[in-house]
Computed example of a mutant assay.
Amino acid sequence: MTKYNIIATSAMGLEAIVAKEVRDLGYECQVENGRISFTGDESAIVRSNLWLRTADRIKIKIGEFKATTFDELFEKTKALPWEQYLPVNAEFPVIGKSVKSKLFSVSDCQGIVKKAIVERMRKQYKQVTWFEENGPLYRIEVALHKDIALITLDASGSGLHKRGYRAGQGEAPLKETLAAALVLLTNWTADRPFVDPFCGSGTIPIEAALIGQNIAPGFNRDYVSEKWHWIPERVWDQARDEAESLANYDQELDIIGSDIDHRMVKIASDNAFEAGFGDMIQFKQMQVKDFTTTKEYGVIVGNPPYGERLGDKPSVEKMYQDMGQAFAPLETWSIYMLTSHEQFEQFYGRTATKKRKLFNGFIKTDYYQFWGKRPPKKKD
């Protein structure tokens, strides 16, 4: 089988988590800012699309080279083996970006790359004078950074955060990939209670359920590369069969999501139903200050309001205080909160065991981690 250079793109701060997921799939990888690179065959492209919970997209690297002139960009793009990837009827739009590079006009770079590919294809398909572009989609990206051009092919289509279960959402929904990362950064295992007291449209509890039952997050969606002639249909079938056999649908889950807004609770329930967890995740309307439990060794993960708008700040700070008081008796529980509020610990009333910088979209946040007592070791 052919070996490809594959890139899993990632949000800032999540690279190490994506890299761990790639290694868990059995591929050695290199980590850079925002991208995790590895090599693999067609099944690696398919499996990483299906399984990576925290990556944004899967791309195939076609070429990487220095380009300081349009001439250089044209010739080096034309030298790449496009005929190995694109059939004669391929639809191949070119998108681009440029950072700290002499070739700073993105639209010009896109045009040059497109022209170079057409030239190369004309040589290959001699009888063709005009490419109809009415076949499968091959979205090409030219990304210039410090005069190095990276040319890739997008194998995902819509971003990997689009799992296909979100029937509705609130004002500021958390991306599914970040929600999965928040769960993976905890010490939670599927045999322990899990609570999200700010569940919104239910993304964190649903991602926890997918992790708890080892369900491939991309199992129920389509990918642009399913229509590519050089990835046989049987490769997709095998990968989906593998995902089906690895899922642990019998794993019981104790997952609760609550929110102050009854409309969000309804949306969260609908989304959980759409994801196949209709009866497995409990959703209820509740304020965080009313949370009590007699269970032990659970995990709480939350993305509470940040108080970004000035008028919201006092009520958010009061809510952090109430939360600290409600959670104080939970000695065996581990608590994880994501917020951009810099005085969170002060209002919550405790110093975090550990903090991790993460980005929620463009908002710089900290993931505050308060570790509870370790559960007793299970007897064999």
Rank of each mutant, 00 (worst) to 15 (best):
T39G: 00
M12H: 12
D380C: 12
A90D: 00
I151Y: 00
E28N: 12
Q287E: 07
E133I: 04
E42L: 13
A155K: 02
K266C: 11
G34Y: 02
G170F: 05
Q110C: 04
A268R: 14
G135F: 03
T292S: 15
F359D: 07
V316R: 13
G40L: 02
I206S: 08
S258L: 10
I117D: 01
Q282N: 13
Y297G: 02
D241F: 01
V235Q: 00
R192K: 14
R163V: 06
L338H: 14
S43W: 00
I363K: 13
P205R: 01
T292D: 11
G40M: 06
G40A: 04
R374F: 11
D270G: 15
A272W: 10
P232M: 00
F219L: 11
W333C: 05
F359K: 04
Q213W: 00
Q238D: 03
R166D: 04
Y320N: 12
Q169N: 14
R122G: 05
N271G: 09
E42F: 09
D250K: 05
L52G: 00
Y4G: 06
H161F: 13
D254H: 11
W188V: 01
E274K: 14
E171Y: 09
P232R: 00
N220D: 13
H145W: 01
A90H: 04
G202R: 09
Q30H: 11
H262N: 13
T68K: 05
I36Y: 06
I117G: 03
N134V: 08
K378Y: 02
G349K: 13
E32Q: 12
K78Q: 09
G96C: 06
K162A: 02
P305G: 10
F104Y: 07
L338N: 10
T129V: 05
A90L: 04
D322N: 11
E133C: 05
A247E: 07
W371D: 09
F362N: 12
A275T: 11
Q325N: 08
E207S: 04
R166P: 08
G218T: 02
L103G: 00
S105Y: 01
V128W: 09
E42M: 08
I58P: 00
W82N: 06
Q321L: 08
A19F: 03
Y320P: 02
